[in-house]
Design a protein around this nucleic acid. Sequence first.
DNA 1: TTGAAAGCGCTAACAT
DNA 2: ATGTTAGCGCTTTCAA
Lengths: 337, 337
Amino acid sequence: MKPLSIKDIAKAANVSITTVSFILNGKAEKMRISQEMITKVEKIIKELGFRPNQVARSLRTGNTKTIGLIVEDISNPFFASIARLIEDKAYRHGYKIIYSSTENNLDKARGLIRMFKSRQVDGYIIAPMTGMEEDIRDLLKDRTPVVVFDRHLPGLEVSTVLVDNSEGTYLATQSLIEHGKKNIAFVTVDVEVEEIKDRYAGYENALKSKGITPDTEICKLIPFTNTADETTAELIDFFTKNPRIDAVLFATNYLAVRGLFCFKEMNKQVGEDFRVIAFDDHDIFKLHSPNISAVYQPIEDIADQVISLILKELSVVDVFEETEFKQVVLSSTLIER
Amino acid sequence: MKPLSIKDIAKAANVSITTVSFILNGKAEKMRISQEMITKVEKIIKELGFRPNQVARSLRTGNTKTIGLIVEDISNPFFASIARLIEDKAYRHGYKIIYSSTENNLDKARGLIRMFKSRQVDGYIIAPMTGMEEDIRDLLKDRTPVVVFDRHLPGLEVSTVLVDNSEGTYLATQSLIEHGKKNIAFVTVDVEVEEIKDRYAGYENALKSKGITPDTEICKLIPFTNTADETTAELIDFFTKNPRIDAVLFATNYLAVRGLFCFKEMNKQVGEDFRVIAFDDHDIFKLHSPNISAVYQPIEDIADQVISLILKELSVVDVFEETEFKQVVLSSTLIER
DNA sequence: TTGAAAGCGCTAACAT
DNA sequence: ATGTTAGCGCTTTCAA
């Protein structure tokens, strides 16, 4: 039960494999193969259910029609949604996605790039982490299309899709101040990436613009490696020790979820007296009583931009054409609830 | 800047490509290649950073070390979590995952199998839908490893990992009855698959065992194709028209989430007087006030079983050995909150 | 103990 | 307008 090959089709149609190959690749016209021959061969292909071996094709042509997707954790709703949209759009252009989660582990991330490279993926979509600069630069040096999103690596010239992180936290902080809040806490994660720093910057700038001095005491840094329970415990400790806090801005949605667990356990009422805003939206926030406001990242736009950038780079035929890197910054918006 | 090939290594080491190949594949010992040669070649490989071209290797050996994962929607938290765990475990065994979402579209699903086939994936992990029976049977006929999970197709002999759906809804319904509920509604989706039917069966059986006659009037079928808003609207209508309902069992977690939105909008207090249980857990249920009980599906167990089944089938060397299909049914448990 | 060479299935330059 | 054939990078049989 060996699968059919192009040879079998050629034999069945009494033509050479070249003819079959041309027809398969839509080059029949250009090669002026007769219409009746085309029809005949196509009929046989359909009847026998022949599908060309993509691996052989890849070896020959050098492209695999595969895009490698590297994110921190594919089960994170933000990445899962993006993955879904990217998959969908890539699929329509004949590309498949191979994904992998870095677990925020640099060694694993770099290993993934090498592994994808040995599998000859045509392009990379990466939510990068600090330390991957050199690896990405190597890819670019080989003229491999790379699009980076969600995070930005300073000094790395590559096509990038980001949301304006500082804008989001600026708006959120401003809104809290306008609600009369005086002691606005900022809960963030200890990952050293620009986006997280930017989120802090937006918070800080909004405070300063209103003449408030940022108070590091009510700025809480949560280790990325924490388990959910550890985070909840740390937050309980933090809010217990700082009862003057009258509003919180969480730098990520999963931290905000932990925060809500924490307030629940503390019997701390969220509401007008104690406002909470999360960065990145989540169904939970809409359902929570009272509603939790959130900074919304335009997921569909992000996916759209990412995929159209990568497809554009993938379609560049002229290898000598200088690729220009495109930076896309999307607005985040504050959803007041 | 052409990537290195095994030829370059052979040249650099002044040996034949055969020798390099044997060393690369750990067959050096068996071939009694001298230790110093091995060390020397390995050193060169490392120095030059050579990585064998996996595509060429695949063409030659016939296996791609790739597993195709087909689910309804990779962004659904249930599938996203499974995808993450499967990816992780597959990775440790040298396998990569290519995924695709069927969107519950039969044509797309069948197309995906064909596409994966042309990409020579070594095995398939599928959360199937009705109509795929023949395609899966074709794969099995070609002795391709397939593991099916989450859903079961009657009459299809294939390794399967399921949770005991009827057990979950039986336990949930029983618990509601024990809380004195008399009019227990069942909200489900109109997808014609065994698992969904089983969930209804568990509900029905629990009622009957307590001498209650199931009342179709308070059993609500929601179209799968509904948007979130449409579902919420239908639910509001349903609960408004049936005020006697004193408890609800939702057949899926996303329906339960819609239900919570609906109750919120209706200002209907969930609690002792109106109990809600969801099938499949979700962070939202833990955070909701009051807490929502849920039937928990052991995600990690599912992923474990799926991956160990597929790896076992993948490792079967003797093609003539009759494969035996293994059916794994995992218990679901009721988490009372 | 190592090397030469066939061949996996396909594409495309070249030949006819 | 269609056929012949080299070769993509690798594994593996067979020969030396």
